[in-house]
Structures are given as structure tokens and as C-alpha cells.
Design a protein around this nucleic acid. Structure first.
Lengths: 179, 179
DNA sequence: CGATAATTGTTATGTCATATACCAATAACA
DNA sequence: TGTTATTGGTATATGACATAACAATTATCG
């Protein structure tokens, strides 16, 4: 079952992505392709109509922006999501947090190792089950999460601006219908 | 997969009652919720508000569906996109096709190797530049692409149905604004 | 009760997507 | 012409992700 395969190609970085967060966009791929196209412009009309392709590219763009913003905190999107969920659900065991985030438990181990190494999260012994660990944030972890939340809120605001009035909520609602 | 399915946002609880370690009461409250070994749901409200998270999950869901559909054709999303772009732009060189798809040229080599091995695409010598290859689809490649297109159209229709009237176009338009 | 099954965290390992550095051949250019 | 850029390719590193197996522990049920 190749649930995990596929190399969602799509533009990840390099040329196409270098525009960063500038809200000033001169021409979209669509426009460039329809504008009688120069001799070297490729016809991408087939792809632009594909929801999956647009989804992939948009996701990469947003994640790239996220990573750039969070570089100062040295947090990846995955790490941020882990801190967030632990913060909102302290005391839960690894398996629960991992499952909630769709992370395989084996892969979650090293993620937690790293967060623990950086003094952001802790594995406390569970009082009721000697197998499991109760995950909590340290003070430093909570502090970092607070800063991260603020940064994330800022990104969300800028995205909302890009998306126009009500666009953000509309987008999230539409995305929700795909899951 | 990487994404859990049933993530009821619920939220609730707001962790006001999150017992840290004090098991002054029977810990049954923790486990006696669901019979399926599922304790009470976690609070994921923080994540559900994040555009990037919704984007990632939706993209994974759509790609997973795509992969399942295309299993009979043995085509990944990336391979489909390559066939599509070559088909719409025959005779272009590798670097152009790769760049259009955001694929690094080194990574594009093995992708083409595979498509060529399967007799779907061909590297023809360029008449004007002995360095470059002119990429084209074979007959088999065109035939497969036609079948793939039909499948893709079907997925698009089902997505449109999920998204409601005008939802698909709205979604694509919003996604376009993020890139 | 006790045997068996299930869960938890973990290690080991494999695959796949993607990035960079470098190269030889060729072309473009100043 | 000599220098630089491009093209396709190789080699390689790095993550993200998956599965198998395991010891310790807990749950289940006859």
C-alpha cells in the first residue's frame, strides 16, 4: 500500500519560490501562461486545473514561509505542532500525542528526544502505568511556545490579508471538507 | 498517510481540569470514555486554526486518494505531472520540464529513466543543441496519459462534489493567492 | 488465578523525496 | 580566442516516513 509514496514534485524552492512573502505579485503562473507566452513559456494549463497540484504548491509555500519565520526559534512546523499539542494536553502519553498528530510512534521518539534535549519538553513517569510517559512542557518550553504562537498568529494575519476578506475562513472550511 | 482521520475538533476541556500527577481520584475518568481504548479526545483547537496544518492534511488526503486511483496505472502524482507537461510541451529539454515542475534536474534524471524504461517517454537528441534532450511521449505514453487524464477528471469531479457548488473554483483561486 | 493478548516506548532498518557539490561535454559570449 | 554558462548526469547527504521486532508492562478472559 503506497500510502506514503509519491514524490509530490511541485515547486518546492529554487526559482519559483524566491519571492518569499512579498505581497506584491506581478504575474501569476496562470497569467504568464495565458499571456501569449514567450517562446520559452511552457503550457501548464493542465496542471493548474488540478486541485491536488495547487494544494501541494500552496502547502509548500506556506510551510516555507513558516520555516523562515521560525528560524529564529529553531522550530520546524512539526516541532511547533508537538509543542502546541503537548501544551494544550499536558500529561498525555506519547502514543496519544503522536497519534493525534499522525506521527508514527517510532518516529516520535527522536522528536521528543530532541525537544527534551533542548529542555522544552519532559517525559514524566506516569503514576498509573509504568510503561507510559506523561508528556509536559518545561517552563522554557511554555515560554518558547508562547513566542511561537505569537509568530504563528502573525503569519495567520498575513495569510488572511493575502486571502482577502473572509478568505481565510473560507479556505479552512473548504480544506476541511477534503478530509 | 501521516494524518489521523477522525479528529473531532471538539476542543472543550480547555485543560482547566488537567490533573498533573495527583491521582486523588480514580483514574478511570481517563480511560473509561471509549471502549476502543481511546481515552478522551485531545484538544487540537490550536492546530485546527492553523492554515498550514489544514493545508498539509488536505493535501495528504487528496494525494492519498490520487495514489489509490492511479495504482492501476502505476503512476505517482509526480509521474502524472511529468507526463502531462511533456505531453503539452513536446520537444522541450529536461531542464525546462524539470524547472516548470519545480524538480531539481539531478532528481529528474531517474524519473525520466523510469518513464523511458517503461516506454512512456523518450529522450530525443536535440537538433540544435547536442547537450540537451528533446522530451516527447511515446504512443504508449500518450495513451496512458489519456487514461490518466480521465481518471484525474473523475477525481476532480468528486472533489468538486465534496466542495459544493463553486467550491472547487473558489478553493483553487484561494490557493493561487498563497503562491 | 494464570495464560494469552494488547499496549508502550524503543531500536533497527528500509524507502522515498529532495538538496547540494561536482563533472564532462557542449554552447554562448566578451 | 579564452572564459563563462548551460545541460545532463553522478554521487551523496538529509530528512520524512514506514515497518518489524522487542522487553517491559498491563489488560483480558477462560
Amino acid at each position: 500500500m503506497g500510502v506514503r509514496k509519491s514524490n509530490r514534485d511541485v515547486a518546492s524552492s529554487t526559482e519559483g519560490m524566491r519571492r518569499g512573502r512579498s505581497t506584491a505579485r506581478s504575474a501569476t503562473v496562470d497569467e504568464a501562461e495565458e499571456a501569449t507566452a514567450g517562446p520559452d513559456a511552457l503550457d501548464l494549463s493542465g496542471l493548474n486545473a488540478v486541485v491536488g497540484y495547487a494544494l501541494r504548491r500552496a502547502q509548500l509555500a506556506v510551510f516555507e514561509d513558516f520555516i523562515a519565520r521560525f528560524a529564529t526559534l529553531d522550530l520546524t512546523p512539526a516541532q511547533y505542532s508537538v509543542l502546541l499539542v503537548i501544551g494544550n494536553n499536558p500529561g498525555r502519553k506519547q502514543a496519544e500525542i503522536a497519534a493525534a498528530l499522525g506521527i508514527q510512534r517510532p518516529n516520535f521518539v527522536s522528536m521528543l528526544d530532541e525537544l527534551e534535549r533542548r529542555g522544552l519538553a519532559e517525559r514524566l513517569p506516569s503514576a498509573t502505568d509504568r510503561r507510559s510517559h506523561a508528556l509536559v512542557l518545561t517552563k522554557a518550553g511554555s515560554a518558547l511556545l508562547a513566542r511561537a504562537r505569537a509568530m504563528q498568529d502573525e503569519q495567520e494575519r498575513e495569510l488572511a490579508q493575502k486571502l482577502g476578506p473572509g478568505g481565510r475562513e473560507m479556505l479552512v472550511a473548504l480544506l476541511q471538507r477534503l478530509m
